[in-house]
């Protein structure tokens, strides 16, 4: 008699190709290997579909054949199984894998583009919070401004790259037929508003400002750190309130 845990471990090892499952299977017209192969195909297919669900623009950018090849290579090489019974959060290592996969490693920007797409998905599924609007701040006495700490909306993600991801996105989303990639980086702020994900492209100074806000610094500390950077605080605050960047505020204790 085989106990269930050993049988299930044997199943996993057979899936990984390190043992055979045929001793567990009733023998008849279809071989145990063929029978097992259906489950292996189902599992790999579900992983592949989850990756395409998280990275649809990668599939569009490099084409289905190449993307499928990368996906199956990732699935077979990584053996990084989900630790939970859902694939919603699985596949976060795929962008790094694209840097090493033979057919994609020449596309040096691809991993960053995939990370951007991954953050877009995370933003879409983030916790619901009502964003702050300008009226929420109007009663704050001006002498408290320096101690103000903004809490960023749960759907906000910041991402910087040394590649012009905004240009690549324009082509993938067919807003431009082709581009000559500029030799510069890109700074993105990703946020959900209503049911829509917006990716805002920022200047380096604006990105630095939002990074400080995200790290929990007070407004006084942030403005001191920003120093001489070319940066319009009023305009950035107005942008933040218009685009739902903050969900709350607190005051730094004195």
């Amino acid at each position: 008699m085989v106990d269930l845990l050993n049988l299930q471990k044997a199943f996993l090892e057979t899936y990984e190709g390190t043992r055979s499952f045929k001793d567990f299977v009733k023998i008849n017209a279809v071989s145990p290997e063929n029978r097992f192969s259906v489950y292996k195909g189902n599992v790999e297919g579900a992983f592949r579909n989850a990756l395409e669900g998280t990275y649809p623009l990668i599939w569009k950018l490099i084409g289905q054949k190449c993307a499928d090849g990368a996906a199956y290579a990732f699935i077979r090489a990584q053996k990084s199984y989900p630790q939970e019974g859902t694939l919603l959060n699985w596949g976060r290592d795929f962008p790094e894998f694209l840097k090493t996969f033979e057919a994609t490693k020449v596309l040096s920007y691809l991993a960053d583009f995939a990370k951007l797409e991954c953050f877009t998905g995370e933003s879409l599924c983030a916790e619901e919070k009502v964003p702050l609007i300008a009226g929420d701040l109007k009663n704050i006495p001006s002498q408290h401004y320096e101690r103000l700490i903004f809490i960023v909306h749960p759907s906000l993600f910041l991402f910087s790259s040394s590649y012009p991801l905004d240009q690549i996105l324009e082509v993938v989303e067919e807003r431009a037929l082709s581009v000559t990639l500029e030799n510069r980086g890109a700074y993105a702020l990703i946020i959900r508003q209503e049911a829509r994900i917006n990716t805002h492209w920022l200047s380096e100074a604006e990105f630095t400002f939002f990074s400080y806000v995200s790290s929990g610094l007070s407004l006084g500390e942030i403005l001191e750190k920003m120093g001489e950077r070319k940066f319009d605080f009023q305009e950035t605050l107005s942008f933040s309130l218009k685009n739902g960047v903050f969900s709350d505020y607190i005051f730094m204790t004195e």
């Binding site: 085989v2 269930l4 299930q8 471990k9 199943f11």
Partner: peptide, 25 residues
């Protein structure tokens, strides 16, 4: 069905053997 072993999840509906032990579990 089952889909998890050793805390690792395989995304498919995998078959269980029909035994007294499995019935209990």
């Amino acid at each position: 069905s089952w889909s998890r072993v050793g805390g690792q999840y395989l995304p498919d509906l995998l078959p269980v053997p029909y035994t007294d032990e499995v019935l209990e579990i």
